[in-house]
Design a protein around this nucleic acid. Structure first.
Lengths: 241, 241
DNA sequence: CTCTGTGAAAACCTTCACAGCA
DNA sequence: TGCTGTGAAGGTTTTCACAGAG
């Protein structure tokens, strides 16, 4: 199903970050070998990853840092504005809201939501925290594109469902649980006989993208690989001559 | 090189989380189909993932929640104590230190480190923040196994190098940069101006495991897939009859 | 001669079908 | 019969070797 490997997208993000660093250092040209070394992958991989999206280099010369950066930003959708809400404004949500770097790419935090009476009404990073009940109207009125989910795990599924119902198209899930269509409790035997009624709310999820950022899972993977280092593919593969 | 797919380890972590939830609900048996549904993968995948590590079920019956949970904890190295330091105690580092769930698995935060005079000496979560200069002695004296890296990106490589030199065996890297052996410099300008030969410390990195938890990268991947939903492999694959 | 772009081969991971045991 | 465990098939990703542009 996937024409472009998922892992390739992660690598593109890394390449872009490297290009930005090169640009701040006023380095104007680079090569697949140079990018590969800095990204910790092979030069083959760099060229293949770029080839999925176009031809950005010059044979014999390499890549223009400015051009490749611009093209990767375009490919990744980072040359447009994204309106973001954060749902869950506890310690983690606040750390996310205040973490520098998001606004570099036109990610704009337009709303913060929580259920806690202690938080609703407070100001965090020049925004007033609203109650989650206001989410639906807010998303529509403010053309919200994506939501960052930073609530405790036991509330994650409901909060995610609220986001989806409100019309959010992408969710960055920080909660250590799998979120998805319907409560995952008992399967729904709903089959539309002919008409298309019984639109189980799960259908709202079609087309919604979920990306997970799970620190507890990362911690556990780290434990495993620390005990079994030979099972980890070496981080810096060999380069060709 | 990897006998066990990397993705399988991530899934084991998910299965374990599901088993814990089943246990709190006093459900004592499960099946590959049930786990698969809750984890958002296929039942084949569940059985294959488990088969990499042993035979934990009973044919015709399924899996005992308690036994499978115990076995997965053992496989993942979560039935032993891990001594952890956090390097970087800004907003993100503090959110990590205070995030619930780490101690459930015998991950013990034994030390917090920073360079900021405003932070060093302060108490965070019953620990006093120390200066990074003390890291090396501390790691040796306290048998530190892993370090969580939550410093700003421009300091990440140096801080990571300090951890490795100190003898940490695993790094959970929250900074949005690639960390690894030596400064990854050496191309554009061979400027290691400040003299000393620094006899490439890169070798210290052998056997050190790095896991990345990169929220900015997740955000960018989300942007990409929101624009290109057809390139995302569907989150809940079909189940067999 | 250099370094990119790419078809083909190899490696890897997932899916499948069914053997095997309760 | 029911569901696990697994060799083999199928599909995807990575690696490779080299054609081709500058």
């Amino acid at each position: 199903m996937s024409e472009v490997p998922t892992a390739a997208i992660s690598r593109l993000v890394t390449y872009l970050r490297i290009l930005e660093e090169l640009e701040t250092r006023e380095i104007v040209r680079t090569s697949s070998t140079d990018l590969a070394e800095r990204a910790g992958v092979s030069a083959f991989q760099v060229r293949k990853d770029l080839a999925y999206f176009g031809r950005f280099g010059t044979r014999g010369l390499g890549y223009s840092v400015a051009i490749l950066k611009r093209e990767l930003m375009r490919v990744l959708g980072l040359n447009q504005t994204w309106n973001v809400v954060i749902v869950g404004v506890g310690r983690l949500g606040q750390a996310i809201a205040n973490y520098p770097g998001a606004s570099d790419y036109q990610f704009q935090y337009v709303g913060l939501f929580d259920v806690s009476p202690e938080l609703v009404g407070r100001r965090v990073r020049d925004l007033t925290v609203r109650h989650i009940a206001e989410l639906k109207d807010f998303v529509r009125e403010n053309k919200v594109d994506m939501g960052f989910l930073a609530v405790p795990p036991e509330r994650a599924q409901d909060a995610a469902q609220a986001m989806v119902t409100a019309g959010v198209r992408g969710i960055l899930n920080f909660a250590p649980v799998v979120i998805g269509p319907r409560p995952l409790e008992g399967r729904s035997e709903s089959r539309s006989a002919d008409g298309n009624v019984l639109q189980d709310s799960g259908d709202d999820w079609r087309g919604v993208i979920v990306e997970n950022v799970d620190f507890l899972a990362g911690m556990k993977r780290l434990a495993f690989y620390t005990l079994n280092p030979h099972l980890k593919d070496s981080p810096v593969p060999e380069d060709p001559a």
